[in-house]
Design a protein around this nucleic acid. Sequence first.
DNA 1: CATGATAGACAACCTGGTTAACTATATGGG
DNA 2: CCCATATAGTTAACCAGGTTGTCTATCATG
Lengths: 154, 154
Amino acid sequence: MSSNGFELPLRLLLAFRMLIDELHAELARQGHPDIRPMYGFVMQAIGPDGTTAVELGRALGVTKQAAGKTVDNLERIGYAERATDPRDSRRKLVRLTPRGMDALDRSARIFDTLRARWAAELGEDRLQALESDLRRMTPDNPWRLDIPGWFGAL
Amino acid sequence: MSSNGFELPLRLLLAFRMLIDELHAELARQGHPDIRPMYGFVMQAIGPDGTTAVELGRALGVTKQAAGKTVDNLERIGYAERATDPRDSRRKLVRLTPRGMDALDRSARIFDTLRARWAAELGEDRLQALESDLRRMTPDNPWRLDIPGWFGAL
DNA sequence: CATGATAGACAACCTGGTTAACTATATGGG
DNA sequence: CCCATATAGTTAACCAGGTTGTCTATCATG
C-alpha cells in the first residue's frame, strides 16, 4: 500500500485537514466560533505589527483585491482594523484588534497542544523526523504561503 | 524550531501543495492543461466504473448539487459524460471518457514518480515511516475525502 | 394505487479568487 | 515647479465551487 503514490498527497492533506479542523473546533470552544480556516493564515500574515493590503496580498500570493476582501471580512467580524498611514496617505495599515490578537495567540497554543498529541502518539523522535523530512521536501521560505484559495483556483 | 506547533500544519500543506503543483505541471506537459487541482480527486472518486451525482457527493463530502456542478465542468472539458441508467431512469451514470481515463492513469503514474523522488531524497525507509505515521494520525477510510472546497468553505 | 423516498435540476446566495478600470497620493526628472 | 510615472486602494464584473431550498420525475412499497 505504501508504494501507491496517490496515498502520500492524500495523507498529507488529510493530516492537514484534521489539524485545522481540530484547531477550529477548539477555537470555537474558546470563544472564537467565527474564524474560518483561512483567517488563521491571514492573521498570521498580518502579524503583530500590521501590514497593508498590497503587502498582505504579496505575502499570501493573491491579488491586492482579494487580500482587501479578506481584510473586509476580518474587519466585519472584529478581528482587524484599518487606519490611514500618517506618513503616506495612500497606504492603509491593517492591524489586528485585541480580539484578533487573542485568536492568534490561542491558535498558537492550540497548535502546540495538537503537536504534543502527535508527539504522544508517535514519539517525539518520530515526529521530529517527520517534521525534518517535510522541511527537507518543501521550500525554505516559510512565508509567502500562496495558500488561501489556491486549492480549486489555480 | 520543531517545537513550534504552527510549523507542522504549514509543512503538511506546503508538501501537499508541492505535490499537486508538480502533478499538474506534468499533466499539462503530457497534454492535460485543463485539469484543475480538484478534478483529480473527483475523477478518482468517479473511478473506472462510474457513479452518480448523489454517490459522488457522498464520496467527496459535498452536496449532490455541488457534485453535479463539478461534473458539469468535467463534462464541458471532455473528461466525463453522463448517461441515463437504463434500469433506473432517475439516475444518471457519470463515467469518465477515454480522455478522462487517460488523465487518471497519467496522474497515478506521475504520483508514483513523485513518490520515487521523495524516496530518493529521504530514503525509502524514512518515507515509509512518514507514510506510516501519517496513516496512524489520519482516519482509516481513505475515501470519503471531504476535500474539495473544504478549505475556505467550512 | 397512494404515499414516501430518492435522483436530479434549478435558483438564489456566499466566499474567495480573478481582471480591469478608476482615484488619490508620492516621487523623481526635466 | 510641474508633469510623468509608480503605487495604494476601491469598485465592478466575472468565475468556481460551495451552500439551502424548492421542484419534478421516477421508483418502491404498504
